[in-house]
């Protein structure tokens, strides 16, 4: 996180790769109950770099991605890819978009190479490109094997190869690390980073922040179908969300009452400490306790990383609001 990259951004300067406004999608269950999957979601993915699209399972990530790709129709709201409205004009930008939605899905009985050749034929890409992309993802030697015989990691790599056939500007990977072993996850992170370093925009969704946070330049966090935070990784950390103060005190019950009176929550930790949430910073906690006559013998911060931000935001510990103002369509 926070690493700098030399990037060549493809697309109109200043125009986001993805812009979503007021997106809403509901489903009916078998019992005809209406379920809201995406609830007036606003989302902006800047062109170039890796954008992590994070949220717990069932938060609406995949549904959103399916709407980005024209596979599902929104009930309300707008989606623009490189300024082009989708799904109505998705065919105009389809050549600039490569995507994996949920699990890689190909014809099981065909070899990896044959699957790619089919796709290449469909979009008019030269067949030689198939070998190039197989080489790039390290599958050239196994290209003749049937897709159904591939390991999950190989399936993911084949899917990435498929997305690269069109040499796209925007890559959308939906939960690409699902089922991968640690080595596979590391390889995938490297691939994602390398693609972004070529100037492409890579939108990666995941419910496990740790798997993508290391390579993400910007982040959007959704919960229950709504955006709860977005921005650069640095801005999210700087917002102070997730920062907790650990304070060592002699009388924990008195200290807890004092902190509660300030509007902060305090949970016991160890024999003589409290973890304070909601406080602006350690100095404020210290001042409040000293004013109340509670001796403080230790003071520090804990948990001020992106993981904590993610957990707090998606568990509802922090009221849902973005870290920067959002236009509401």
């Amino acid at each position: 996180m926070g690493t700098s990259h030399e990037e060549v951004v493809i697309g109109t300067p200043g125009e986001p790769a993805v812009r979503v406004r007021g997106l809403r999608k509901t489903y009916r269950t078998f019992t005809l109950r209406r379920v809201v999957a995406v609830d007036h979601l606003d989302l902006e993915v800047p062109a170039g770099g890796v954008h992590a699209f994070l949220g717990p399972n069932g938060s609406g990530k995949t549904t959103t991605i399916r709407m980005l790709l024209g596979l599902a129709r929104p009930d309300a709201g707008t989606v623009h890819l490189f300024g082009t409205p989708v799904p109505d004009r998705f065919p105009e930008v389809v050549g600039r978009v490569g995507a994996i939605v949920e699990n890689p899905r190909f014809v099981p009985g065909f070899s990896g190479r044959r699957n790619l050749r089919l796709l290449a034929t469909a979009v008019g890409v030269p067949q030689t490109r198939v070998e190039d992309v197989l080489e790039r993802v390290g599958l050239r030697e196994r290209g003749a094997d049937q897709f159904r015989r591939y390991s999950l990691g190989m399936k993911q790599r084949l899917a990435i190869a498929a997305t690269l056939l069109k040499d796209p500007d925007l890559l959308v990977f939906d939960e690409p690390t699902n089922g991968l072993d640690p080595a596979g996850i590391r390889d995938l992170r490297a691939t994602v980073r390398a693609l972004a370093d070529e100037g492409r925009t890579v939108l990666v969704s995941s419910h496990v922040l740790a798997e993508v946070a290391q390579v993400a330049d910007t982040v959007s966090i959704v919960a229950a179908g709504r955006l709860v935070a977005e921005g650069t990784v640095a801005s999210l950390l700087a917002s102070g969300r997730g920062a907790q103060v650990r304070v060592g005190v002699g009388d924990r019950s008195l200290a807890a009452r004092v902190l509660a009176a300030c509007g902060w929550s305090a949970d016991p930790e160890g024999p003589d400490a409290l973890v304070v949430r909601g406080a602006p910073g350690p100095a404020d906690v210290n001042a409040a306790l000293v004013r109340a006559g509670v001796p403080v013998h230790a003071l520090g911060t804990t948990g001020g990383d992106l993981e904590s931000v993610f957990l707090e935001l998606t568990s509802g510990a922090v009221p849902a609001s973005a870290t920067r103002p959002r236009d509401v369509a």
Binding site: R66, L69, G70, L71, P87, F90, P91, V94, V97, G98, A99, V101, E102, N103, P104, R105, F106, V107, P108, L119, A122, V123, A159, A162, K166
Partner: peptide, 14 residues
């Protein structure tokens, strides 16, 4: 059944 149609539509969306 295989879900390959979703992949297909990201290549041929019409």
């Amino acid at each position: 059944a295989s879900g390959a149609i979703a992949t297909w539509l990201t290549f041929a969306p019409r």
